[in-house]
Amino acid sequence: MTLTWTTQPFSALTLPELYALLQLRSEVFVVEQTCAFQDIDGQDQAAHHLLGHTEAGELAAYARLFPAGISYPEASIGRVVVSPKFRRYGLGRELLQQAIGAVEQLFGAQPIQIGAQLYLQAFYESFGFRQVGEGYLEDGIAHIHMVRP
Rank of each mutant, 00 (worst) to 15 (best):
T4I: 07
E55Y: 07
D41C: 12
R93W: 00
E138A: 10
V132N: 06
M146G: 06
L65Q: 07
Q117W: 03
L59F: 09
P84N: 00
G140W: 08
F10S: 04
Q113M: 11
L18W: 08
V82D: 03
R130P: 02
D44F: 11
E32K: 14
G115Y: 05
L50Q: 12
F10A: 05
P111C: 02
Q131C: 09
L96I: 11
P67T: 03
V31R: 06
Q8A: 13
Y124T: 06
E55G: 15
Q43K: 15
G128A: 08
I70Q: 13
L18S: 10
D44L: 10
A12S: 07
R93L: 00
A68Q: 06
A63I: 12
F127W: 14
S126Y: 09
A68C: 01
L22D: 03
L18E: 14
E94D: 14
L65E: 08
Y136A: 07
T4Y: 03
F66G: 00
I77H: 06
E27D: 14
R88A: 13
F107D: 02
R93A: 05
L65W: 09
H53F: 12
E55L: 15
L13Q: 06
M1L: 11
Y62R: 10
V81Q: 04
E27R: 14
A61D: 07
A12K: 06
V31A: 01
R130V: 11
G108Q: 05
Q97C: 02
Q117C: 06
P67K: 14
Q131W: 03
A46M: 12
S26Y: 11
G69P: 11
T7G: 08
Q33C: 10
R148F: 06
E74C: 05
A116M: 05
E27L: 13
G69E: 04
L3Q: 00
Q98F: 02
A36S: 12
Y72V: 07
I100W: 01
T14E: 01
I144T: 14
Q110R: 11
Q97K: 06
L59R: 13
E74G: 01
V81D: 10
L118T: 08
Q97E: 07
Q105F: 01
Y62V: 12
F37W: 05
E125D: 09
G90P: 04
I100A: 02
D44Y: 12
V147T: 14
S126K: 05
H145N: 14
Q117N: 01
D44W: 10
P67F: 02
E138W: 04
A68S: 10
L106S: 00
L51K: 07
S126D: 13
G92C: 05
M1R: 02
Q45A: 15
T7W: 04
D44I: 11
V30M: 04
D41P: 09
F66T: 04
G78Q: 04
L59H: 13
I144Q: 14
T34Q: 15
G135N: 13
H53R: 13
Q105P: 00
A60F: 04
E58H: 12
I40S: 10
L118P: 01
H48E: 15
Y89E: 12
T7I: 12
Q23L: 05
